[in-house]
Design a protein around this nucleic acid. Structure first.
Length: 1064
RNA sequence: GGGCCUGUAGCUCAGUCGGUUAGAGCGCACCCCUGAUAAGGGUGAGGUCGCAAGUUCGAUUCUUGCCAGGCCCA
């Protein structure tokens, strides 16, 4: 910003803005003046003030921010800025998600230490220290990005999930759930990552592209049934599996009780049982020669249930209740044989069904995904590596494998290690989400979701089907499960701790770090063991990091150990925003904990935005480089343009949005939004400074255009307020954009001359004050949407104030414009908008007839209904379309023909079916108007209100219809010598202005002018000489013969110009 | 297989509580204006509103089915 001089009250504003440059200057000024801090502190806190609670979702900081973070970040800034201006106190603390698999995996890679054993050898303490450093590695870069994008957030008072206070709140939550009976421990089949050596929650395996295609072997194997009397011979039953490695753990087979099964005689005479529905699929294996399969017996699944068979591996032979056929409802015949092989240690259905049948499960696979010693033939092999070995082994047995094929399917992978997951029975702690389902759904109804269909759709459905949430991880870097247990089952005891005080009370030490391994060192004798031998030891697991981020609403405040009122009075938070996939991530975990702990929603309003894609609809990826580099965009185009680009897109309605690979879309924002605003500002300062005028906030102008633009601005304030109150950022942007058209393209353009300080005329302070008033209001409206540009403009308009405060004054410290600040004038707005349509029509007539606008015409005539409202605005129209007179005619039929437009909405209920006849007749012109104003058509009489009359221009007249056809615009295309002369004079003025520009003169410079004209032209120009002189600020004008060398052609005449700047 | 969302101009998207002539921006063509000027503006071409049936006097809009794409869940 250039400092205003004595006579200049505003900075000199270049018509071409350097947005990146001004953005960095403003950042410095905000920094120096602590503007963000002031914007919070100046708003009164409770009890008198109002609070708006924004909760910031914590990112992992072990990578750089990407576009998704930028988008979310902008939204996270727009809403709090708006609410701040509405008078609320909006504190914004950044948060960091520090724990969990991402951190551990990164550290494993960095240290070259992989796997549980290696980490234990390396030392859990050492490992966790490395994690602690690693997770904060990129916080500096994050801060840079966040600052650069004008996202105001407090980094100093940030929360970190690894802080002692935060973790204490987390274990408090755990204890609360425990006390409420919402936690339990179970040995259950879960998605398991052998890469990370830990179970995963059912939503982790659905993260992003964790599920993707994979090819696996599929094996159909035969199990020999123990014979019964009714058998036609020795039977075997065929089962199909895509996990051959689970066959050694097979303990049962499942059939569908309702399904029909057949016994087929195959090559060599063996009898095989499959579902009848599988015959076609297995035709080749079940046929003898070219004959179709020979069915020798038929039975139902119910008949088969209860029969026993011989295990194909003998590792677990003889186990109680095992190797039996069980009837189960989930069995289908789509894939496979209609017989399902059951390994209860490695399948969720398998476990459920077998447990019901009294079969105890076996899990001969260790934490790293390798077979244990139980499976002697494959011990030590990874299960996926063992697949081909198992197949080879079984094939060698001759009559076991019925078919071996490959199978392409979508298979879940570990989101961190990228290894294919397996299902495996493990010990884990669960939150009893299924007990809460009803309350989760009820409380969900209190949340305002944007877009709203998420509430009952994606989120509501997810809640309905939610399963118990596994919250323990067999890892190292995380909040510990605060559970201590007796190491002697003879003296069972479990203690759960919910605070550091409680721990200290029992262990006599006050922990200063709740992380492993320190927390594991806390051991004490089991009070229930009279012998004093057994000890209480902590269970080894740590908590799921989603449990920790879900605890953020209270844990960031160290609730309930501190800030009890602070949290309780502001739960739920007013606003959160993240991308839509968080319906099963952060949104979900916060909701579960909010309901479980407080029986309340965790947030009142939530925006779920969509995903950014490239122009081809692919995900943005570093490899493809299919997006513009954000830092480069900041430097070349600016952050405000990117902010607008993102927040005005359909992505905020939950849809995916495509972004160009270059920055063209963002540059377009500059052209369509930033430049118009900037040009208006630059225009204002140019003339206010030229006149040394200091404008003031003033809405009292009686000038029509002033009143129009004030009313339009009032409309903008209303629209933007409504949109932002509804968290509809895209609509807020749209309302600004359509307003800009009226401001720049109509008000400024039509008012330009009023800003020129023509000598002898008094300065039009109404115009300057009005434009100032409008601009200072617009600056406040766009403050959340374009914080830099708004700041620059507002600060320029209030340069004195900013200077007096040493740069401290800021648009972001202002109040949002009140709804009654500016006059509302609907009638005027309607009339003016109508007038603009008339002007368009008139200009199109000019173009059609090749009549340039500089050439004045005698008149324009408006004929038809509804034109009277623009009569008071005639001068503006005359000016815009350059005519001497605006005429209004009642005799519409002189220029056009009426067409009957029956009003279907009114007539429909009255006439029913006949409406269509009436409409048809009206279209054909088959109607008559009576003297009393009624219309008869197709045997019906239409009264006033039943119809409208449209006016179509007559052939051969220079006339154009308006939208809606209720009036026509007629242009008098007749030219006269005098009009031509005036047009020529205007052409000359234009030529001189161009020359002034080329001579690099200031708009206020006076000149002496020499016009070289031919004799005929001299005569034409003579009456307009004074006017020309005044238009081009010539204090002396002489008419001479043309200088042939420099002459140009103007309207068929040869003209030359010489001008010189006058010193005064 | 179920649920939700989307389908409107060459592209990106608004809109229509049902009314008979559906809008914007970009792109394209032509033109104008310029004391906001390496800007600005106007005009125009371009649409069977995914397809079909139903409800209705009337459907792009409501209902149902189908098709295509996306997301979520099995």
């Amino acid at each position: 910003m250039t400092n205003p001089s004595d006579s200049h009250h505003y900075p000199e504003v270049s018509s071409r803005a350097d947005f990146p440059g001004l953005e960095s200057k403003i950042l410095t000024r905000w920094e120096e003046n602590q503007t963000f801090n002031k914007s919070i502190e100046q708003r009164v806190d409770e009890p008198d003030g109002e609070r708006f609670v924004f909760n910031d979702g914590p990112p992992f900081a072990n990578g750089l921010p990407h576009y998704g973070h930028l988008l979310t970040g902008y939204v996270k800034d727009v809403v709090p800025r708006y609410q701040t201006m509405r008078g609320k106190r909006v504190e914004r603390n950044f948060g960091w998600d520090c724990h969990g698999l991402p951190a551990e995996m990164q550290t494993e890679k960095e240290l070259g230490v992989s796997g549980r054993k290696a980490i234990v050898d390396f030392g859990i303490g050492n490992f966790n220290n490395a994690c602690r450093e690693s997770v904060l590695r990129y916080t500096g870069e994050w801060e840079t990005y966040v600052n650069r994008m004008a996202r105001w957030v407090d980094f100093e008072n940030d929360y970190k999930t690894m802080n002692l206070d935060y973790m204490e709140s987390v274990i408090w939550a755990f204890k609360q759930l425990w006390d409420k009976g919402l936690l339990y421990e179970a040995h259950r089949v879960m998605p398991y990552s052998w890469g990370a050596e830990t179970p995963l929650s059912n939503f982790e395996i659905r993260l992003d592209d964790a599920t993707r295609p994979r090819q696996d072997p599929a094996l159909t194997v035969r199990f020999a049934l123990d014979p019964v009397a009714s058998d036609p011979g020795p039977l075997s039953i065929a089962a199909w599996t895509t996990t051959p490695w689970t066959l050694p753990s097979n303990l049962a087979l499942a059939v569908g009780p309702e399904i029909t099964y057949v016994v087929v005689k195959i090559e060599g005479g063996d009898l095989v049982v499959v579902a009848e529905a599988a015959l076609e699929n297995y035709e080749r294996e079940l046929s003898v020669g070219d004959e179709p399969p020979e069915v020798v017996a038929t039975m139902t699944g119910a008949d088969l249930a209860g029969r026993t068979y011989q295990p194909i591996f003998d590792y677990f032979a003889g186990r109680k209740n095992s190797f039996v056929i069980i009837g189960a409802d989930f069995v289908e015949t789509g894939d496979g044989t209609g017989v399902v092989h059951m390994a209860p240690g490695f399948g969720e259905d398998d476990q459920r069904v077998c447990e019901a049948a009294g079969i105890e499960l076996v899990v001969p696979v260790d934490e790293t995904g390798r077979f244990t010693e139980d499976v002697v033939d494959f011990a030590g092999q990874n299960v996926f590596d063992a697949n081909p070995e198992v197949i080879k082994f079984l094939k060698a047995r001759g009559n076991v494998v019925l078919r071996h094929e490959t199978y392409d399917h979508n298979y879940p992978h570990c989101w961190r290690t990228d290894t294919p997951i397996i299902y495996r029975a493990v010990n884990s702690w669960y939150v009893r989400v299924t007990d809460l389902t009803d309350r989760l759904l009820e409380v969900n109804n209190e949340i305002n979701w944007i877009p709203d269909h998420i509430q009952q759709g994606q989120f509501g459905r997810w809640l309905e089907g939610a399963r118990d949430w596994s919250i323990s991880r067999n890892r190292f870097w995380g909040a510990p499960l605060p559970v201590w247990r007796s190491d002697n089952p003879d003296f069972p005891r479990t203690d759960v701790y919910g605070s550091i005080d409680e721990i200290e009370a029992d262990f006599g030490v006050r922990p200063t770090d709740l992380h492993r391994p320190y927390i594991d060192d806390l051991v004490r004798p089991n009070p229930d063991d009279p012998s004093g031998q057994s000890m209480m030891r902590r269970v080894p697991e740590v908590l799921d990091c989603w449990f920790e981020s879900g605890s953020m609403p209270f844990a960031q405040h160290h609730y309930p150990f501190e800030n009890v009122n602070e949290f309780e009075q502001h739960n739920p938070a007013d606003f959160i925003v993240e991308y839509i996939a968080q319906t099963r991530g952060w949104f979900y975990t916060m909701h579960v904990l909010g309901v479980a702990l407080f029986d309340k929603p965790a947030f009142a309003n939530v925006i779920c935005h969509g995903v950014l894609l490239d122009a081809e609809g692919r995900k943005l990826s570093k490899k493809l480089r299919n997006y513009p580099d954000p830092l480069e965009v900041f430097e070349t185009v600016g952050s405000d343009a990117m902010r607008w680009y993102l927040i005005s897109s359909p992505i905020l309605r939950g849809l995916d949005t495509r972004i160009e690979a270059d920055d063209s879309g963002i540059r377009e924002v500059v052209r369509l939004v930033l430049n118009p605003i900037w040009n208006t500002y630059s225009f204002f300062t140019l003339y206010a400074n030229a006149d040394g005028y200091k404008a003031s906030f003033n809405t009292s102008s009686t000038n029509t255009l002033d009143r129009y633009v004030l009313a339009k601005t009032s409309e903008l304030v209303h629209n933007a307020t409504a949109a932002l109150d509804a968290y509809d950022l895209a609509t807020a942007c749209a309302s600004v954009q359509s307003y800009l058209d009226a401001l720049t393209n109509w008000y400024v353009r039509r008012s330009r001359e009023r800003f020129w300080n023509t000598s002898g005329e008094p300065l039009d302070t109404d115009a300057l004050d009005t434009l100032y008033t409008v601009l200072t209001t617009v600056a406040r409206v766009i403050a959340p949407l374009l914080p830099f540009v708004a700041e620059e403009i507002w600060s320029g308009l209030h340069a004195d104030e900013v200077e007096a405060s040493n740069g401290g004054a800021s648009v972001h410290l202002q109040d949002w414009p009140a709804l009654d600040e500016l006059p509302v004038d609907t009638d005027l707005v309607v009339a003016m908008d109508r007038l603009r349509e008339v002007a368009s029509a008139a200009l199109s007539l000019r173009e059609e007839r090749n009549l340039r606008v500089r050439l004045p015409l005698a008149s324009v005539t408006i004929a038809g209904v509804g034109s009277s409202i623009i009569e008071p605005l005639s001068d503006i129209l005359a000016d815009e379309v350059n005519v001497k007179q605006v005429l209004f005619s009642d005799d519409a039929e002189a220029f056009g023909a009426f067409r009957l437009k029956p009003n279907g909405r009114v007539l429909g209920p009255k006439l029913g079916k006949d409406v269509q006849t009436v409409i048809k007749a009206a279209k054909q012109g088959d109607w008559e108007m009576a003297d009393d104003g009624t219309v008869s058509v197709a045997g019906h009489t239409l009264a006033e209100g039943d119809f409208e009359l449209a006016l179509d221009p007559k052939e051969g007249v220079a006339a154009a219809g308006l939208r809606g056809n209720d009036a026509i615009v007629v242009l008098d295309t007749e030219t006269t010598e005098s009009l031509e002369a005036e047009g020529f004079a205007r052409d000359l003025v234009r030529l001189v202005q161009q020359a002034r520009k080329e001579a690099d003169l200031d708009v206020t410079d006076r000149i002496s002018l020499s016009l070289g004209l031919e004799p005929e032209a001299k005569a034409v120009v003579a009456p307009h000489t004074d006017w020309i002189a005044s238009q081009v600020l010539a204090t002396a004008i002489e008419i001479v013969d043309p200088n042939e060398k420099s002459a140009t052609d103007v309207d068929g005449r040869s003209v030359s110009i010489e001008l010189a700047k006058r010193s005064n």
